[in-house]
């Protein structure tokens, strides 16, 4: 089975986000870039399945300019076999999905796996759009993936429980927390072998943005914490009423 894992190059989750003057764009100066954590878990699961012998090849794909290559090399060092970089600056979820779809039309695959969202723009959209554009079935909210007799056994989260489903191949899975537990850390051998693994660059499709960012606003600063003695319930009730205004 050949698996494609879509990865996104995102700012480290501990980054203090700043905006450029005018608040229409993020200031990326000095930002450390990482693989989107949900995509990293997807990749980790693909690697685990490859190590178990049920997956033959893992290809990672991303839509990004050349400055994302360290992130791609990290995916290769972690255990992906090859990589595709669609040379474009994605402008929105639709445009990202369109670029991925165009590049994947020329690839042989059985499963595409996408993280549920990217940790920067949180659109929750690319996976579903991509499946539609590729005209392949998709399953969302996937928390577990096994492969038996070349068939994926998928567990997804539903309200109040879990659901087990299968999917016609080729298909697409939108995975979330639970798909893998600990993201794979590349070994030295992996880092050395990443040098020589193929990284194909394909031309992207330029697309007009369907969504315009009008304004960014930082979340309000967290107010300081007040610690009240556990014996002093009267004061707790009063503060919840007068300051927090929740009762």
């Amino acid at each position: 089975m050949n698996i494609i894992v879509c990865i996104s190059n995102v700012p480290d989750t501990t980054t203090r986000i700043k905006y450029k003057p005018g608040n229409k764009d993020v200031d990326y100066t000095g930002v450390q870039w990482i693989i989107n954590p949900w995509d990293e878990l997807a990749l980790t699961r693909a690697i685990e399945l490859k190590e178990a012998g049920t997956v033959k090849k893992i290809t990672v794909i991303t839509v990004a300019k050349a400055d994302a290559e360290p992130t791609i090399r990290k995916a290769l060092a972690s255990g992906a076999d090859e990589a595709i970089r669609v040379d474009a600056s994605p402008v929105d979820a639709w445009n990202t999905a369109l670029n991925l779809a165009e590049a994947l039309k020329n690839e042989q695959f059985d499963l595409v796996i996408c993280g549920v969202e990217s940790s920067d723009y949180n659109n929750w959209s690319v996976g579903g759009m991509l499946a539609e554009m590729l005209r392949i079935p998709s399953v969302s909210a996937v928390t577990s993936l096994q492969i038996e007799n070349s068939k994926p056994i998928i567990t997804r989260e539903v309200d109040g429980g879990r659901q087990q489903v299968s999917i016609k191949l080729p298909g697409l899975l939108i995975v979330q927390k639970g798909i893998a537990i600990v993201p794979r850390i590349p070994s030295m051998r992996g880092i050395m072998s990443a040098r020589t693994k193929p990284l194909k660059v394909v031309t992207g499709v330029s697309g007009e943005s369907l969504i315009e960012i009008v304004d960014y606003e930082a979340p309000p600063q967290k107010s300081s914490c007040k610690i009240i003695d556990s014996e002093n319930l009267e004061m707790l009730a009063e503060l919840l009423h007068t300051e927090a205004r929740v009762i």
Binding site: R73, K74, P183, I185, I191
Partner: peptide, 19 residues
Amino acid sequence: TGEQLMIQQAARDYAQREL
């Protein structure tokens, strides 16, 4: 180099997540 940064990151990830 890219490899040196990757090693630094691998060590950081291991230290911050596991160690």
